[in-house]
Simulated scan of single mutants.
Amino acid sequence: MTTSKLSGRPFDAVLCDLDNVIRFYDTTELTSLERAAGLAEGTTEKVAFAPETDLPLLLGEITEEQWVESIVAGLADQVPEARARELGTALAKAPFRADDAVVAMLLRARAHVPLVLVTNATVELEDDLVSLGLADLADHVVSSARVGVAKPDRRIYEIAVRRAGVAADRCLFVDDRLENVEAATALGMTGLHYREPAGLRGALGSLLDG
């Protein structure tokens, strides 16, 4: 990381992913249903998150209900239709929670620099943030379903940088997917491949101490 002579900070904005960094899903029910159906754990998610199934949802082109029907179609050769719909619905309706430690760190960082959420999300994102109590967590939210482009497409990063109001090379980008981090660093950002809160704590450094 380089330090700005003007700010004395290693970066002047934090761009952060949502899922698997801040928000985590509980797929216990889905796992139980897969086991009962004789499917390997993760079978439903493999179908649901395949680009041809997932991307239309993340670009706001289809509804959650239509996504579930796509999952049903993708599981058609493995389980009966009714069971496939049960599995798809369990995934779509899986409960979620926020990691309080991560939220606390981001709020402390935001006291010093802009915070922008950059997430591949559905049109339900705003309601989800309200339910998590995080509607006011960030200065800006860049949702793929609202801007019509998803990570790792460089355009969503460029939108986020503009909203942050700083140069790309003055941004810290945090994401749990390596391909998304690599796309950010290709634009000059400092990247953090998120694994656990300790890594984020180290990357935020002086922002948490100031």
Score class of each variant (00 low, 15 high):
Thr63Pro: 02
Ala164Trp: 06
Glu196Ile: 13
Val118Asp: 03
Gly74Leu: 04
Asp54Thr: 15
Glu182Gly: 12
Gly8Met: 00
Leu117Pro: 08
Phe173Pro: 00
Glu182Met: 11
Gly133Glu: 03
Ala109Ile: 08
Thr122His: 11
Pro10Ser: 02
Val103Cys: 07
Thr31Tyr: 15
Glu45Asn: 09
Thr43Gly: 00
Ile156Arg: 12
Lys5Glu: 04
Thr27Ser: 06
Leu172Ile: 08
Asp136Cys: 11
Gln66Gly: 05
Val166His: 08
Leu208Cys: 05
Ser70His: 12
Pro80Lys: 09
Leu75Ala: 00
Phe173Asp: 04
Pro56Cys: 15
Glu86Asp: 08
Leu200Glu: 00
Pro152Met: 11
Arg195Lys: 14
Asp153Leu: 12
Thr63Asp: 01
Glu196Leu: 11
Glu196Asn: 14
Lys5Val: 13
Thr63Arg: 09
Pro80Gln: 14
Asp12Glu: 03
Ser7Tyr: 09
Glu52Cys: 13
Val113Ala: 06
Ile62Gln: 00
Leu33Gln: 13
Lys5Gly: 10
Ala104Phe: 04
Val174Thr: 04
Leu106Thr: 10
Glu29Val: 02
Leu15Ser: 01
Thr89Ile: 11
Gly205Met: 01
Arg177Tyr: 07
Arg23Glu: 02
Asp127Val: 10
Phe11Thr: 09
Asp99Trp: 07
Asn180Leu: 14
Arg146Gly: 07
Ile22Lys: 13
Glu45Ile: 12
Pro51Met: 00
Ser32Pro: 13
Ala145Gly: 04
Asp176His: 09
Leu137Thr: 06
Ser143Ile: 10
Val103Gly: 03
Leu15Arg: 02
His140Ala: 03
Asp100Lys: 14
Asp77Ser: 10
Thr185Trp: 14
Ala168Val: 00
Arg108Thr: 05
Thr44Gly: 05
Gly188Phe: 06
